[in-house]
């Protein structure tokens, strides 16, 4: 039994964290989020150069990158590509997303779209941006040119599992950032002559976020490993990870907003973008409750 990332994976994490902090400080992320596109069109070439889209990356490597992408709110369709679309497309070389009920997250930011069992060039579709809560992962309405457009693909059976595991990792990154922002703030903000982090009502809630985060992190890594290794528990591991990591991210962001007071409720402060990402992750393809329903089926049958 060995539950640790390899040295290479730890280096990958450190370099991803540094690159994101350097290339996309939170004020730049805010500007992109408030801009017309909601993503940085130059990012893809850089991600390619960094090796984030290499075919050689294992799922646990991508787990590290998706977590860091969540931590930094990487303004590019990276997670949608590697987590949602790549298993059907067969590679992550070009930015891609998936269409559900005519809607695709990052739909206007990608070149390829997976619709059912087909992969279509985005340029062949009619794509209309739609107002979205998470302005760094905006939805677009997608009209396919005709029913049999594009290439037909057979998605690998573990596509849903890969997606679930990687989104859980992204959620862990979001929660970690919400926690870090909160810890930094409550250590310096003073009220009634004391820093607010010395009040237990604040400190204990922050501790609760840490607990939920660490539990979700364990599940998310377990899920990524189980899918990579083809473990028989992969399905329940992913359901557990998605339900716990989604809820932890929501709780972590909510606690962060509360601990910041008024400033946490402003558009200006970065917290709301993490919160909206947490909401997006939780909403995608089945709620935490529906994940647990899957687990209940595994425990009890239908």
């Amino acid at each position: 039994m060995d539950f640790a990332f390899s040295e290479e994976q730890q280096m990958l994490r450190a370099s991803a964290r540094d690159w994101l902090a350097d290339r996309y400080p939170l004020d730049r992320v805010a500007a992109i989020s408030d801009g017309d596109l909601g993503y940085d069109p130059d990012a893809w070439a850089e991600l390619t150069k960094l090796g984030w889209l290499d075919e050689s990356l294992e799922l646990t490597d991508l787990a590290v990158l998706c977590e860091e992408a969540g931590y930094g709110l990487l303004p590019a369709p990276f997670v949608t590509t590697v987590a949602l679309a790549a298993p059907a497309v067969g590679s992550a070389e070009r930015p891609a997303s998936v269409v559900h009920d005519g809607l695709a997250p990052d739909g206007a930011a990608v070149e390829l779209l997976v619709a059912g069992a087909r992969v279509v060039e985005a340029s062949a579709c009619t794509i209309t941006a739609v107002d979205s809560v998470d302005r760094l992962r905006r939805y677009a309405r997608v009209e396919l040119p005709e029913a049999d457009a594009g290439e037909s693909v057979t998605s690998t059976p573990d596509a849903q599992l890969r997606a679930g595991a990687l989104l859980a990792c992204e959620a862990v990154g979001v929660t970690q950032r919400a926690l870090d922002l909160t810890v930094a703030y409550v250590k310096q903000r003073e009220q009634f002559g004391r820093v607010i982090g010395s009040y237990q009502a604040i400190a204990h809630r922050v501790s609760d976020v840490y607990v939920q985060l660490e539990l979700a992190r364990s599940l998310a890594y377990w899920a990524a490993w189980s899918v990579e290794a083809g473990d028989p528990q992969a399905e329940v591991a992913v359901a557990a990870a998605r339900s716990a990591a989604g809820e932890a991210a929501l709780f972590g962001c909510e606690a962060a907003i509360q601990s910041h007071g008024g400033i946490g409720f402003t558009w200006e402060h970065p917290l709301h973008r993490f919160y909206k990402r947490a909401q997006w992750i939780s909403s995608w393809s089945g709620s935490a409750t529906s994940q647990r329903a899957q687990i209940a089926t595994a425990l009890f049958g239908d």
Partner: peptide
């Protein structure tokens, strides 16, 4: 069923957090 599944999730979370700490 939902409440029981939640307990199952909490159990796995505890288990794998221990594995992580132990590693």
């Amino acid at each position: 069923r939902d409440r029981i599944a939640r307990h199952w999730v909490e159990l796995q979370a505890l288990r794998y957090t221990n594995y992580r700490s132990l590693t």
